[in-house]
Nucleic acid binder design. Structure first.
Lengths: 213, 213
DNA sequence: ACCTGAACACCGTTCAAGT
DNA sequence: ACCTGAACACCGTTCAAGT
């Protein structure tokens, strides 16, 4: 216990509000998220959040930070499942990204749809994004060492691959991929097909199957 | 003149509202867009838009449709500039996409950030997206014929390349690309680097320079 | 057909005031 | 330090009424 803080009459309103916001995103979508509703769900008055967040943007930044941490945890878990198998780590890491988007679309949207003034004002968010990026750079570097990805500055290669994965997931999520295509191919199939353009070897067909779920 | 319609006392309120919305996006950003403000700018009462749009979503769908048309026009123009040069057409088409995002970030955001229930309710939007997608498929197919892209179903290859371009542009726009990277490389450089992973030949260095602007 | 004005339920944000 | 209640200026949407 780093700080034995037991404030007024709500255990930890700040985190309660973040959790409430994430729940609202899951149940009502991004359009239904309001400071007042989060306050109501946490059982406090509509002005109480202002004791912990400068404005709505600040709450959203906190929700975004938590989103990045969940993404990080998912990719890390996928990584742990395939020690010494860089190809599998790359593919399942990307799939973990997609799975988060599919399971919690509005939290994903808020997390990745920039809080605009970000960097300056929300150091925790900056740190969370840097940590995730760093993790992907590691995976990419492993793949390069194994000759699975072309030699290039790992951060540049990471930008390219992250872009491709993020773009595919976003377009699918926003319904911008034509029905014709989504009826013929699963998202996982499209993901592997796209990663296949980067990867310098054949990808085993058995990886096409969407895992558990 | 397909329809000599001269309604009540406003020439064409519907289009006036769409233009007003696009102007608001440019001057105040996506957060500042409201039906009431668009109505005010068009010089009508706040309830007047409901004669032409079912709700705010419907206006946004119209703005999105217009965004897709501008994107289409830009890519078409880039195409016309490089007849018989598929590589250049691909690169400058992608750059046209990025240029739209850079010049009118909030219109780009609204255009690509799905209206969710899209397909069913807004046939004009569906048509506009299909047209753009078709144009890119053409360019991709040309590149494949020239051996610049790997042989694969052109629509699948288009999904992969569009994803990469869209992802890169989106991440850059939302400030999700680390400062360190954006300070060292221009967006155009990152775009070409990314396309380079798909293209089966060397890309002339002189294309790295960002054109007019 | 096209538009207005009043009305309703909701926001984000501020601020004096209470414990 | 943490929270409340009233207040203000904004929304989206509806609806009776006017031309």
């Amino acid at each position: 216990m780093p700080k034995p803080k037991k404030p007024y009459h709500h255990g930890d309103l700040k985190n309660a509000l973040i959790q409430a916001a994430i729940e609202i995103l899951a149940s009502e979508g991004a359009g239904g998220l309001s400071l007042r509703k989060a306050a109501r769900r946490a059982g406090v008055s509509h002005a109480a959040p202002y004791a912990h967040f400068a404005d709505k943007q600040a709450l959203i930044a906190a929700v975004s930070t938590e989103g990045y941490r969940r993404l990080h945890a998912r990719i890390l878990a996928a990584n742990a499942r395939y020690p010494g198998d860089p190809l599998r780590r790359l593919i399942e890491g990307a799939w973990a990204y997609a799975a988060f988007a599919l399971e919690d679309p509005d939290h994903f949207r808020v997390t990745l749809s920039g809080v605009v003034a970000r960097e300056q004002d929300y150091p925790e968010l900056t740190q969370a994004t840097a940590a995730s990026f760093g993790l992907v750079v590691q995976i990419v570097a492993e793949c390069q060492a194994a000759g699975l990805l072309r030699a290039a500055p790992p951060d540049l290669m990471t930008v390219s691959i992250w872009s491709a994965v993020h773009g595919l997931v976003s377009l699918a999520l926003e319904g911008q991929l034509s029905h014709i295509i989504l009826e013929r191919y699963t998202l996982r199939r499209l993901l592997i097909q796209t990663l296949g353009e980067f990867i310098q070897c054949e990808i085993p067909r058995r990886l096409y199957a969407t895992p558990r779920g």
